[in-house]
């Protein structure tokens, strides 16, 4: 894993910039995302509003930064949860093999037929009004399968690795083998997948919010902003393009970082 590859560096830099903008940015703006400038409704970008204004005269930049904040938090949390779940399932299935492996991989196969976004959507009516943290949990619940397969494949190959066999020969317990020998080997792999999962989770959140199944008003995320903007995309493009830009930049940054790391791993 070489952090110094240009693509990884660019991704990391862009991601850091976005996190900084989302956390510090709103403090530096003269408007909050709820302030309404009623004289400038749906105004094109200008000096006062660099990204224009929305339907009620809200500043697009403030809205986007606020949305970015939510999207990033959801994306990061969901990615960490996803990765932890994948690591657990993948190592257990791969190392133990046998029945545990078959059952877990069957679950993976079933969940892979069912696209995560649709599963969460089906559950959304029951969750109306609950916290966005539930959304994070759900995204993670339906997104861990691909990484867990990768982890499982690695665990399976490590199961016959000389040093794992050597540890078994000395009588080391399963817990010790998993924590001392398997997981440390997986750290690079998990770091990469976690980064890529950030990209997927941000996209999943945006997709759900786009259909109205994700973040609920008055809260905003990049997904809800894109959804609102789509209707006016052909008439007031900035309402659409501004959140799209942030969304694409976020996903791209995470994907670039992950890719850059992966090429060497």
């Amino acid at each position: 894993m070489n952090v110094h590859r240009p693509i990884a560096l660019t991704g990391a830099g862009l991601l850091a910039l976005l996190v900084l903008a989302a956390s510090v940015g709103p403090l530096l703006l003269p408007f909050t995302h709820t302030d309404q400038d009623l004289r400038n409704v749906l105004a094109a970008p200008s000096g006062a509003h660099p990204l224009g204004t929305a339907r009620l005269g809200e500043d697009m930049l403030a809205l986007c930064l606020r949305g970015l904040q939510k999207s990033l938090v959801i994306g990061l949390l969901a990615a960490v949860l996803t990765t932890a779940l994948s690591a657990l399932v993948g190592t257990v299935a791969g190392y133990l093999g046998g029945v545990a492996d078959r059952v877990l991989m069957m679950v993976v196969d079933v969940l892979l037929v069912l696209p995560p976004i649709l599963a969460v959507a089906v559950l959304s009516p029951a969750l109306r009004g609950s916290s966005w943290l539930v959304l994070v949990l759900l995204i993670a619940t339906f997104q861990w399968m691909v990484t867990s397969r990768v982890v499982r494949a690695r665990a399976r190959s490590l199961r016959v690795a000389g040093y794992v066999v050597a540890a078994e020969n000395t009588g080391a317990s399963t817990t010790r083998i998993v924590t001392r020998h398997l997981l440390p080997q997986m750290v690079p792999l998990l770091a990469i997948d976690c980064t890529l999962n950030v990209a997927s989770a941000v996209l999943a959140e945006a997709g759900l919010s786009y259909f109205g199944f994700g973040v609920q008003p008055p809260d905003v995320s990049l997904g809800t902003l894109v959804a609102t903007g789509t209707g006016s995309a052909l008439t007031f493009p900035w309402v659409f393009l501004a959140p799209v830009g942030f969304l694409t930049a976020t996903v791209l940054a995470a994907a670039m970082l992950g890719e850059g790391l992966r090429d060497d791993a």
């Binding site: 690795a161 000389g162 040093y163 066999v165 050597a166 540890a167 440390p184 080997q185």
Partner: peptide
């Protein structure tokens, strides 16, 4: 105790 064939694989590279 046992000594295995390939020392390149029988020693955990992270330890």
């Amino acid at each position: 105790q046992m000594v295995m064939q390939d020392p390149a694989s029988s020693l955990n590279p992270t330890m």
